[in-house]
């Protein structure tokens, strides 16, 4: 370090007024701050902040409502598929058993053609029943899988609710600090406790194109492969 090392040295271009550019930046920031302060005071800054701080809990309640309703809907669907899947399995098992029995009976030749006809129709129906129940069950599994939206959207909502809460606390703190009329509350709660692993808990990625985000299971697998797993 030389004795002459001052901040001005790093940016010593002289302005027409003879001020260094860093002095000018400070002047300008000061000016902008004054203007902002004046206009905000004119608008009633404390009133605006108060309004925002009041609106946030309302937004949070609405998000909580969305989370609650989607959870209830997902639960209803899962309850229905839980009941429907065994019913389909029962139908399928019955059809298979009857099919087997009719096939055994048909091995004995019969002279009654009507009887044979009815037996053939029954067999055809049983085959269809087996096929359709299998397809229905696959659809029911698909309906069940689709309920994973509740977990994913729920995580996003939780995340936003958390952000809103933080914002609210900061605004409340701002109000406490600058408008003594407002009762002190939540001052301690304002300190969010972020754990060591917090930066690794971002919830579902809503933009698969973002940097450092894997867009598919294949990319997860490729990354793990490259790590030797």
């Amino acid at each position: 370090m030389t004795s002459e090392a001052t901040p001005q040295q790093a940016s010593n271009a002289e302005s027409p007024l003879g001020l260094s550019s860093s002095d000018e930046i400070l002047n300008r920031v000061g000016h902008v701050t004054r203007t902002l302060h004046d206009s905000l005071s004119g608008l009633g800054l404390d009133k605006i902040l108060e309004q925002v701080a009041q609106d946030i809990p309302d937004a949070r309640d609405r998000l909580a409502y969305v989370a609650r309703m989607t959870e209830q809907a997902a639960e209803r669907v899962l309850n229905a598929t839980d009941v429907a899947i065994p019913l389909q399995e029962e139908l399928a098992a019955g059809a298979t058993a009857l099919q087997q029995r009719w096939q055994d009976v048909m091995r004995e030749p019969s002279l009654k053609s009507e009887y044979n006809l009815a037996a053939n129709d029954t067999l055809a129906y049983l085959t269809m029943a087996g096929k359709n129940t299998a397809e229905t069950k696959a659809l029911l599994m698909d309906i069940m899988m689709a309920q994973d939206f509740q977990d994913l959207t729920g995580q996003v909502i939780k995340k936003i609710t958390g952000l809103a809460q933080e914002l609210e606390q900061q605004l409340v703190q701002l109000l406490i600090d600058f408008s003594p009329a407002i009762p002190k509350k939540d001052a301690e709660a304002a300190k969010a406790d972020a754990g060591d692993n917090a930066s690794l808990m971002n919830g579902p990625q809503i933009d698969p194109g973002a940097v450092d985000v894997v867009a598919s299971q294949e990319q997860v697998d490729d990354l793990l492969d490259s790590l030797g797993f």
Partner: peptide, 13 residues
């Protein structure tokens, strides 16, 4: 998990 950042996968591994 829904966590899909590369650092998550590396940390888990």
């Amino acid at each position: 998990t829904a966590e899909a950042k590369k650092e998550n996968i590396i940390a888990a591994a």
